[in-house]
Structure formats: C-alpha cells, structure tokens
C-alpha cells in the first residue's frame, strides 16, 4: 500500500500535528471571508509556497494534485457559465489554495498522528455518548490511507483494459473499481477485527 505522507524535514513536517490541523481548519474558514481576487491570489501563492517547501518535486506534485485540480477546474468552469468571470476566478483561487494547503498538511503528517489528533478532538463527543472517538480517528486515518490505493487500483483496471485492447469506459472502470474496493474494505475490516484494533465497549 502506498501513502500520501512524504518523508522530510521541512518546517511543516516539524510542526506539531495539532497545530497543522488547527491551522488548516482556520485557513479554510478564513479563505471564505475574502471575496476579491488580490487577497485570494496572494493566499494561493502562499499555499503554493508552503506546498513547494516540502520538496516533493513538480512531476510528483502534478501527479498527486491533478485529479483534485481537474475537479476544481470543472467547478470554476461551471461558475463561469452561470456567473461572472470574477466569481469563477474567486472559486478557482479559493479552492486551489485550500487544495494546496490540505495536500501539504497531508503530505507532512503521518497517518498515525492524524488518527491520534482526530481521536483526541472527538473525545468531547464521546463523553456525551455520541460517538466512539477511536472509531472516528481510525475511520479518517483509513480514508487517508485508502486514497492512493484506490488510485492505484483504478490505474491497474485501466491498464487491464488496454492490455485486452478495450477502450476504458466509465461504467467498465467504475464497476470493477467499486467491487474491488468493497472487497478490499471487507478484508481490511477483518484484519482490524482480528488484530483487536477496534475496541467494542
């Protein structure tokens, strides 16, 4: 299995996980208070600089960010069609800033740290009987862990199409991808149970 975490010694790597997650949450909220292009453009540049400080490299960065960026581009294009150019640019810059910052935090924080922090943050909800904090932490950790795995599987299914001389289509890609992902999720769930990772209070 691959990981979104990238080893390194950047400032962002050295920051405590809690500071990174709180910073990301605060920045996510703050970005929605800016409605004009200059401050959003500045924010996008700042986030790009933070992402660049991780030293991932252009080629790898492009491969990692392309799917999300394509989604942002579609949203911006749709905004352009139904709204103004300024609104589209605002959406594009805001979401790009968020994507870069979130990707930087994900790349600079190990999944174990994510699980610990999210579990801790969910403790108050556990105290009032709403959730099991450890389950919330584990679930979010697993989502992060599964992203590169699902992308790998998607590529493997696409390659299998080419190997058999078939043109990849949404339906023939999506169906095996969903079945394989669910099957794998069952096996991972069995491993979690077998290893007693998920406590049953």
């Amino acid at each position: 299995m691959k990981t979104l975490y990238v080893e390194g010694d950047s400032l962002l790597h050295r920051l405590p996980p809690r500071a990174k997650l709180l910073g990301l949450a605060a920045a996510g909220i703050a970005l929605f208070f800016f409605r004009s292009i200059p401050p959003l453009a500045l924010a996008a540049l700042l986030c790009a600089a933070i992402y660049a400080s991780l030293g991932i490299g252009l080629r790898h960065s492009f491969a990692r960010l392309r799917p999300i960026f394509l989604t942002i581009a579609v949203v911006a294009l749709f905004t352009l069609l139904v709204g103004s150019t300024e609104e589209a640019a605002t959406v594009l810059l805001r979401l790009t800033s968020l994507m870069l910052l979130a990707a930087a935090v994900t790349a600079a924080t190990g999944i174990g740290d994510f699980i610990d922090e999210i579990t801790l943050a969910a403790r108050p909800l556990e105290r009032i009987g709403l959730v099991k904090a450890a389950d919330i932490g584990l679930s979010i950790g697993l989502v992060i862990r599964f992203v590169p795995e699902i992308l790998d599987r998607y590529r493997a299914i696409k390659d299998a199409h080419y190997a058999r001389g078939l043109k990849p289509r949404i339906l023939t890609l999506a169906v095996p991808l969903i079945i394989l992902t669910l099957k794998n999720a069952d096996e991972i769930a069995a491993a979690i149970d077998a290893r007693g990772i998920r406590t049953q209070k």
Binding site: I111, G112, N184, I188, R195, I197
Partner: peptide
C-alpha cells in the same frame, strides 16, 4: 492473513505495529 498486504493497515511499518497497541 493469507495476503499480508491486508494485514498491514497503516503504510509505515512502526505506525502499523503501534496501531495494534492503541486499545
């Protein structure tokens, strides 16, 4: 398990081993 890939839940080995001790 038959496929150890499914046994290892977190990608970094020491993180994965520590996960089993969380409870």
């Amino acid at each position: 398990f038959q496929n150890p890939q499914n046994q290892i839940i977190l990608p970094i080995l020491k993180e994965d081993i520590a996960l089993g001790l969380k409870s």
